[in-house]
Design a binder for these strands. Structure first.
Length: 813
RNA sequence: GCGGAUGUGGUGAAAUUGGUAUACACGCCAGACUUAGGAUCUGGUGCUUUACGGCGUGGAGGUUCGAGUCCUCUCAUCCGCACCA
């Protein structure tokens, strides 16, 4: 019978379902592995990126099950988000219906791939039961002061009609729709991720060697910790008067306190309160005021393109050490969002300040010796710095900070580039933020017993405004505190909140899902995820938020885990003709069609064979054919197997070809361990199996065939589970799939060993030696064989590498 | 600018970590079988040279008996961050 993938695959998928073959043990006693591929957004159809992601995860899960681990390998749906609303606008379908019907369809697609998911732990993040617990966490965070509401400048995407977190802005554009982001002043909810910045940064060390360096560095840069001095510039008496006595001073932050004697001006952001005051009270000439307003309306990216711009504000401050009067400017490169929106400017030792000072003819004062040219930003010794002159700048940093602290006019501080996480979205299809606005009590958290605060279903999704805001009655409620009429918050949570704790939800036994959000014992047993697999695009977004949530939930007592994902594998993209597959480019391959034509095993084999998982995978139709051919060949060779268990083979009776076949088979075996536990190079494991099959084909010993297939089917089961299980059942009653296989060293013992003979560093000839030959015998034979090349030469050095080669270093005699 | 990675046949890629470079697969070439072949099977396939040989892992040096692998410099490509004071 020839290979019929569809029949075989349907048969085993049903059997696995019936047997509930992939449910983890409820008893948390065995050693465990938690294997997780990032869950999909239910967009409607699976794409090849999903196939790759889940094929990799499934191989790990199946491998560790074979090693007797209690394996948790769950799947679910990251189900809230914009596309559901967009679909509603376009097709008039309710986001909820759209989402759940997509889930049903994609679940079927995943089923046809034969993935070994636990089916009892599946959930969608839009399930009300999931929302319920998430809202509880949010309320707890509010109670702990980790969550707050404030009105500030936010990133606004007009296309998506919502606010975006800093992490969701890529080169000034929306991460989802690529629309340029605008700045807007509006209230929002924030999680104090900065409070955890040090923890998030420090624990990256734990992940070294287990996460890709690239991701670790990206997170480190994103957190952007820098240490320096914070101090205050006191305004001159004249300036205080000009500002109506509203301001006495302002705070600046610098990482270069060692250059403080070189300060020749100070610069404020256009959004700085003092700049604002001057604008609001018409204290600037019209032209300057207009220009500053223009700057305020520009994004940071636009400002950067614009070049350095600034205006003298007509104010002065007193230098804290020299007591000199220094002019105050506003400058477009001073960021309102960092370090208080004000800087001390040292043009001699900072490139930006230098450029600015040169443009506006401001004084430049050198205070660090070294190099000819200014600005000089490297290390050196202080000059023109009063009592600190002559001190190396590295030491001066510390001394100057100490001096400020002693005088109580400043202090050493740490600043982060990381901004607090804005989690509110002005959209319908998300988890409602469980707060209430009361005229008397202010912002009040909903009572936990009232959770979940569910979305109303009778909404009109038009794309205009926030449907919750527009709903006639939903937002009316009683204040949880005083009982008076109050208004429900109509913002919903960022979808990244859901994906920040889903790994704990899977770990919680579904029997407890009604009672708890996260079960501590379950979480402590299953977490961290032993192998997490997903796209590099989440290097900062999801992976940073999930790390943050893990630490917060730990501190709130839900579990004791520090890091959610122990090992991270970032898979490469699937490409076609060098470009990412996408509907708009029309260069997609439909997984359904692929499975239909070749079967899931071929789809899986190809994606794992064509490139190592971290690299990009270039689609290649003929290579898919090649994968299919290999499986067919494997299937056809069932005829060669005569035994039904692992045979005992007398090595001495075998032909050279049979011996070689055994060597190839037993080389593939340890490769498997290596690949799953160290290198993740599935392509090399598959290649090793192909070599073994090729070598088996060159001989005809039945026992060697039986042994070879017994082992190979075991090794290939995590990759091509259907055909291997089918063959294993036919040939070995599935005994080999769970068998503990061990390398038989005698297989590698050779009758004779081929030594390469190198003379003068070049490969010249080969000699056959008995394994028992001494170094002297080998050398003698080598010299004899290489006599032709040794003529007229003196041997300087003789090297024998056991079982490998002889190298004779020579020079002309 | 800062940071991270990657450079090996026509292509995707290997190389037990310093020991026969190009395994495995795709493609290509030749042959077999076939009414036919875009099916299947067999063999070949780094470059160069008539040959002996020579040259080959982005480039240039170095260490070593021996370097894709280690060191120094350099070039190119990709990715991330980007006025963070």
């Amino acid at each position: 019978m020839s290979y019929n993938p569809n029949e075989i695959e349907a048969k085993w998928q049903k059997k696995w379902d019936d047997e509930k073959a992939f449910e983890p043990d409820d008893a948390l006693t065995r050693k465990k592995k938690y294997i997780l591929s990032m869950f999909p957004f239910p967009s409607g159809r699976l794409h090849m990126g999903h196939v790759r992601n889940y094929a990799i995860g499934d191989a790990f899960a199946r491998y560790y099950r074979k090693q007797d681990f209690n394996v948790l390998h769950p799947i679910g749906w990251d189900a809230f988000g914009m596309p559901a609303e967009n679909a509603a606008i376009k097709h008039g379908k309710h986001p909820k219906d759209w989402t759940y019907s997509n889930i049903d369809y994609m679940r079927k697609e995943l089923n046809t791939l034969g993935l070994s998911f636990s089916k009892t732990r599946e959930f969608a993040t839009c399930d009300e039961l999931y929302t319920k617990w998430e809202q509880e966490f949010i309320i707890r965070m509010f109670e702990e002061g980790l969550l707050y509401r404030e009105s500030t400048t936010v990133n606004w995407c007009e296309d998506c009609h919502t606010v975006l977190a800093n992490e969701q802005v890529e080169e000034g554009c929306c991460w989802r729709c690529d629309n340029p982001v605008e700045l807007k002043e509006m209230p929002g909810y924030y999680l104090d991720i900065i409070k955890y910045a040090d923890d998030l940064l420090g624990d990256l060390k734990q992940l070294e060697g287990k996460w890709p360096n690239q991701v670790l560095t990206m997170q480190e840069n994103w957190i952007g910790k820098s240490q320096g001095l914070e101090f205050e510039f006191e305004l001159s008496e004249e300036s205080k008067a000009k500002l109506g006595g509203k301001f006495e001073k302002f705070t600046v932050f610098t990482t270069r306190p060692d250059t403080i004697f070189g300060v020749t001006y100070s610069a404020l952001a256009a959004e700085h309160p003092i700049t604002k005051y001057l604008l609001d009270h018409n204290l600037l000439d019209n032209e300057t005021a207009e220009k500053i307003v223009t700057i305020t309306n520009m994004t940071e990216i636009e400002r950067a393109k614009e070049g350095k711009e600034g205006y003298d504000l007509g104010l002065t401050v007193i230098h804290p050490l020299t007591r000199e009067e220094i002019p105050v400017w506003t400058a477009n490169f001073v960021l309102a969002s960092y370090g208080g929106g004000a800087v001390m400017s040292v043009p001699a030792h900072d490139e930006r300040d230098f450029e600015f000072a040169t443009k506006y003819d401001l004084p430049i004062k050198r205070v660090i010796a070294g190099g000819e040219e200014l600005p000089y930003t490297a290390e050196g010794t202080l000059e023109n710095s009063d009592m600190f002159t002559g001190i190396p700048n590295v030491d001066a940093k510390k001394e100057i900070i100490s001096m400020f602290e002693a005088k109580e006019v400043g202090k050493g501080t740490t600043n982060y580039k990381l901004r607090n996480w804005g989690i509110s979205r002005q959209r319908y299809w998300g988890a409602p933020i469980p707060f209430v606005h009361c005229d008397d009590c202010g912002l009040v958290a909903e009572k936990v017993e009232n959770l979940p605060i569910a979305l109303p279903e009778d909404v009109e999704i038009t794309g205009e405004g926030n449907p919750l805001e527009n709903h006639p009655t939903w937002k009316n409620c009683a204040c949880p505190k005083c009982g008076k009429d109050a208004r429900r918050e109509t913002d919903t949570l960022d979808t990244f909140v859901q994906s920040s704790w889903y790994q704990f939800r899977y770990a919680t036994n579904p029997k407890k899902w009604n009672k708890v959000g996260i079960d501590k014992e379950d979480a402590n047993y299953w977490l961290g995820v032993d192998q997490y697999i997903g796209g590099i695009e989440h290097a900062i977004l999801h992976l940073l938020y999930a790390r943050f949530f893990t630490k917060v939930l730990r501190d709130l007592g839900y579990h004791d885990i520090d890091e959610p994902f122990e090992n991270l594998l970032t898979q490469g993209m699937v490409l076609m003709d060098g470009a990412k597959m996408s509907k708009s480019k029309g260069n997609t391959v439909d997984p359904d069609a692929l499975v239909e034509k070749y079967g899931a095993d071929t789809a899986r084999l190809f994606t794992l064979f064509a490139a190592p998982p971290a690299k990009e995978l270039e689609w290649n139709d003929s290579a898919v054919e090649g994968a299919f051919r290999f499986i067919k060949k494997l299937y056809d060779r069932k005829e060669k197997v005569t035994g039904s268990t692992l045979p005992n083979i007398d090595q001495s009776t075998l032909s050279k070809e049979s011996k070689l076949a055994r060597v190839k088979v037993y080389e593939a075996l340890p490769k498997s361990t290596d690949v799953y536990e160290k290198t993740f190079a599935f392509n090399t494991l598959i290649a090793a199996c192909m070599e073994a099959l090729n070598a088996l084909d060159k001989q005809d010993n039945e026992d060697v065939w039986t042994e070879g297939m017994y082992i190979m089917l075991n090794l290939l089961e995590p990759i091509i589970p259907h055909v291997t299980t089918e063959l294993s059942e036919m040939l070995f009653a599935r005994e080999n799939l769970g068998a503990k296989l061990e390398v038989k060293e005698e297989v590698f013992v050779q009758d004779s060993i081929a030594y390469m003979v190198m003379i003068g560093g070049k490969k010249r000839t080969e000699i056959e030696m008995s394994p028992s030959a001494s170094n002297d015998e080998i050398l003698t034979a080598a010299k004899e064989a290489g006599a032709k090349w040794l003529e007229g030469m003196t041997i300087v050095k003789e090297i024998v590498v056991p079982n490998k080669l002889v190298n004779l270093a020579v020079k002309p005699a």
